[in-house]
Design a protein around this nucleic acid. Structure first.
Lengths: 252, 252
DNA sequence: CTGAAAGCGCTTACAG
DNA sequence: CTGAAAGCGCTTACAG
């Protein structure tokens, strides 16, 4: 900008104004034209870093997913990225791998990079951290999950209702002995599925056999689920399984 | 930093020094300790933007792949990201979708964001742009592809040799009438495959029937390839097909 | 219609 | 051992 100003013989301020299309009505057309031309000639590229330092905006948003190798995460990331791009935002990613420490480290790294906001899929145990974020008024929204005691912006699916509907569908089709495979977790959105399942059966007048419910270790996902499926299939009374894991479609 | 300096009663410079662990040997241990403590207390977070403006380093690298929805791109991106993270770098992505204009726009956007360097999978026709990058001494490395007339850092696989070896394997197993499906393109790395294919058959004393070679439109990939496969399969003489497209494994 | 100047939050020669 | 000061490349009240 200094070079342009010198070449055209105006102030840096004026260069800034015309290159940002500000006060267009009260700037001399010819001067503006000349500034634009020399900017072109000198191959001027605005330094976004300097701009950010001044304006306090980086047009960057940080996204922390739970496990990037999960197709759910990657397609989510892709969509958020595309949507952000529409508004001129870059989104930078991180994967917490459901690990609290990693989640915290990523959050801090993103904040230090001055992201304008955070989209978070927080692992269990991260309430305190989120509370701190809230206290410092750092903009964030939670996706996919939620914490019942934490008031925050979030976008979720109604897991309880979804599970309720799925299980009810089984019942309508005469499958009343429905097995459930869920994760051993304290993430509310996952436990909501168990609630929906239980409620649906209850409403259908089916008394749930507790052997029908299998909770598997989330960190050892495919093999554990495979075992659980086998166990349920060999349980004589079960005639349907409610299992919510996209990746496993192929397995069944 | 100003707040810390005021609180401890030292200069901002000193705060900067101790927080960056510089001149450790000649700074008063007690003062350093006190600075670190108040930094902690005040929940100091370094502003990376300001740091970058001064140091001219963002520890960010830009990666432009050809088509992010292609598993090749996404796994590449994942690996580069992980590798970058080891060295404290964030990598930000973009997908050119093999489009020159989009490629140029992304390149500019990344440069304006002051990435420290670029990793590029350039679309055909991008030589001029790359030349400009080179002329302005902007650091970049080309991956996966190359332009014969452009000298630049790049990491590639030897497509010619790979195709040669693959086709030779067919020949060794008695399949001498090998069909080839390749893209209609002027990307050298892809045409190298045709060269390797041709050379392998030539070296085996097989005279290539030109009906064996099918070139399909890259932008209409799956259906076109499907057609080409069908065409080759119905050609009576062909007894093997060299087809280089990971995604299609399932199709055959 | 245009410019001088302060300032964003840091780093870094330089001086003492 | 420590600090005053300049400067990175911008933006933006403010004055004229």
């Amino acid at each position: 900008m200094k070079d342009i100003a010198r070449e055209v013989g105006v102030s840096v301020a004026l260069v800034s104004y015309v290159l940002n299309n500000r006060f267009e009505n009260r700037i001399n057309k010819d001067v503006a034209e000349k500034i634009r031309n020399t900017a072109q000639k000198l191959q001027y590229r605005p330094n976004q870093i300097a701009k950010s330092l001044k304006t306090n905006k980086t047009f960057t948003i940080g996204l922390i997913v739970a496990d990037i190798s999960n197709p759910f995460s990657s397609s989510l990331a892709r969509i958020i990225e595309d949507e952000g791009a529409k508004y001129g935002y870059t989104v930078i990613f991180g994967s917490s791998d459901e690990d609290l420490a990693k989640f915290e480290a990523l959050t801090n790294a993103f904040i230090n990079r001055q992201v304008d906001g955070l989209i978070l899929l927080p692992p269990s145990g991260s309430e305190a951290l989120l509370l701190r974020l809230k206290a410092m008024r750092f903009p964030f929204v939670i996706a996919d999950r939620y914490f019942p005691k934490l008031e925050a912006h979030c976008v979720n699916v109604d897991n309880l209702k979804a599970a309720y509907d799925a299980v009810s569908l089984f019942v309508e089709h005469g499958k009343k002995a429905v097995g459930l495979i869920n994760y051993k977790t304290d993430l509310a959105h996952l436990n909501d599925r168990t609630k929906g399942y239980t409620q649906a059966l209850k409403d259908a007048g089916v008394s749930v056999n507790k052997n029908w419910i299998r909770k598997v270790d989330i960190s050892n996902d495919p093999p554990e689920i495979e075992k659980a499926v086998a166990a349920l299939l060999s349980a004589p009374s079960v005639n349907a399984i409610f299992l919510h894991r996209i990746v496993l479609r192929c397995m069944l």
